[in-house]
Amino acid sequence: MRHAINRWEVLAAAALTLFGIFVAWVGSGYELGVSGRPGPGFFPVCVGLATAILGGVIAWLFFRAETPKPDLPLRPFLAVTAGFVAFALITERFGLIPGTIGLVVLSSLGESPLRPVATAALAIVLAVGAALVFVVGLKIPTPILRW
């Protein structure tokens, strides 16, 4: 029995090949040099081409592979992304304590059921702890709190 084309595997392999072509293309913009004195572009072109070829081999090998559709739940992904962005933006403007609270609260939304009390307690403990350890203790040059 022949199996249907495994779209997911082929897509991943195609992304790999595209990445390889991109690396080789950017690399070819630097001087390639001659074989006795390879320039800064020589190695990147080789690496890019090797990646592109391996992408092709994977597509060929996994064309009809029976691997299941990858499991990529959206919720943890969104929660953690929001947490990271919030941490970066808030910490730069308002300091480490609000940044930490933003990260902890948003990333906690990734798991259900929501536990508001536990999350709030964790956010406060971690914010104070991080300020003490990293700013007071290790002297990382970021404000604790500012507005």
């Binding site: 953690v80 947490g83 990271f84 962005v85 941490f87 970066a88 910490t91 730069e92 480490l96 930490t100 990260l103 902890v104 990333s107 906690s108 990734g110 798991e111 536990r115 536990a118 999350t119 964790l122 956010a123 971690l126 991080a130 990293f134 290790l138 990382i140 040059p141 970021t142």
Partner: peptide, 26 residues
């Protein structure tokens, strides 16, 4: 649910502290 936000925080602050640059967090 208590563990992973703590780990994320540690990762963020640690990476930021290397160059003091938020780009590293991204």
């Amino acid at each position: 649910y208590l563990l992973y936000p703590s780990m994320l925080l540690f990762i963020c602050v640690g990476v930021y502290s290397i160059n003091n640059n938020m780009f590293d967090v991204y």
